[in-house]
């Protein structure tokens, strides 16, 4: 197990290094890094000073090493607009995004798995058809338009929920969160649902396919032959078997949730890193964009790493294989 963990961790580091290289040389190939990293509104002397300060007059390989050093030490430049270190800025917005992503995932699991299992257990019932039809629509509609429609219905026509913002926050372990106050919770519902819709549709599909496959297995029939209650058969014997693929895919989708949070945060004016990214792109605040890139790469690599770990915990068969190899 440990050997597997170490090898897998090494792979993650390698991908990080490759991506850092791509981002660095991407900046060189696509445009002049001076344009990207230096505030174009400064005067010429200030720009030259900045060039020297950032080491942009050095040869490329030295700059690359410095870029890597910056990544390793968390120094990814200073935001032109906010005049704070870019990484710090992003990290200060991260809790809002994570809160949103967490609740979206929670909704996806809590709604998607039961609905998918119902559709898998009773494939020809009208309810299942409605569920599957809904999941096709959930899959097909672009996220941002779903968000607009949620706002239109709940905020404009019925006026029951706010259309944007984070609402009142309280500190939990020093981190501001919305879900602990009623006002914050109200602000959280729509964006979380918006971010979750696609995942709900996905989880429904996965759980349905898994349920209909697992229900035919001998061990389910055997569970019935042992006189177990239907509740236990569905809730333990089937659920535990379908959880493996669902958790894997959901884990891999965690990155996608962060990506789509860009859209949801823009629609609902949710002050997370996605909104920060879009604002920074609009304001040409490029250090923030670069910092966002590196942080996302880091997050993705980490997510993939942890999903693999979780997978091997959940499926005892994999654990054995990994241990032997």
């Amino acid at each position: 197990m440990l050997a597997y963990l170490i090898r897998r961790f090494g792979q993650s580091l390698l991908v990080m290094a490759v991506m850092a290289t791509i981002v660095f040389f991407g900046l060189y190939m696509v445009g002049n890094p001076v344009d990207l990293l230096i505030n174009p509104e400064d005067d010429l002397a200030a720009q030259e000073a900045a060039i020297r300060r950032l080491g942009l007059d050095q040869p490329i390989y030295i700059q690359f090493l410095q870029f890597l050093k910056g990544i390793a030490t968390g120094n990814l430049g200073v935001s032109f607009v906010h005049n704070t270190p870019a990484l710090e800025l992003i990290l200060s917005r991260l809790p809002a995004t994570l809160e949103l992503a967490f609740f979206a995932m929670l909704l996806a699991i809590l709604l998607g798995i039961p609905l998918g299992m119902i559709a898998g257990l009773y494939p020809s019932s009208p309810g299942s058809r409605v569920i599957m039809g809904g999941s096709i629509i959930g899959f097909s509609t672009p996220n941002f338009w779903q968000g607009l429609m949620l706002i239109m219905l709940f905020a404009v026509f019925w006026r029951v929920l706010p259309s944007g913002g984070r609402g009142q926050t309280t500190d939990l372990f020093g981190i501001p969160v919305s879900f602990l106050t009623l006002d914050g919770l109200k602000h959280l519902i729509l964006p979380a649902l918006n971010l979750a819709i696609f995942k709900i549709a996905l989880v429904i599909r996965l759980s349905r396919a898994g349920t209909s496959e697992v229900s035919l297995q001998d061990y389910v029939k055997y569970a019935r032959a042992r006189g177990l209650s239907e509740k236990r058969i569905v809730g333990v014997h089937i659920l535990k078997n379908i959880l493996i693929p669902v958790v894997t895919v959901l884990g891999l989708e965690l990155g996608n949730v962060i990506a789509f949070a860009v859209v949801t945060e823009t629609v609902f004016a949710w002050p997370g890193i996605g909104k920060l990214l879009i604002d920074s792109i609009g304001l040409l605040d490029r250090p923030v964009v670069v910092a966002y890139m590196m942080l996302t790469v880091f997050m993705f690599v980490m997510i993939n790493f942890f999903v693999d770990m979780a997978y091997s915990m959940l499926d005892p068969r994999i654990r054995i294989k990994a241990g032997k190899s």
Binding site: D218, Y219, V220, K221, Y222, H237, K240, N241, D315, R317
Partner: peptide, 14 residues
Amino acid sequence: MIFQDPMMTLNPVL
């Protein structure tokens, strides 16, 4: 009841 194939009878994840 005892089933035919013991490889398939017991739930693999429990």
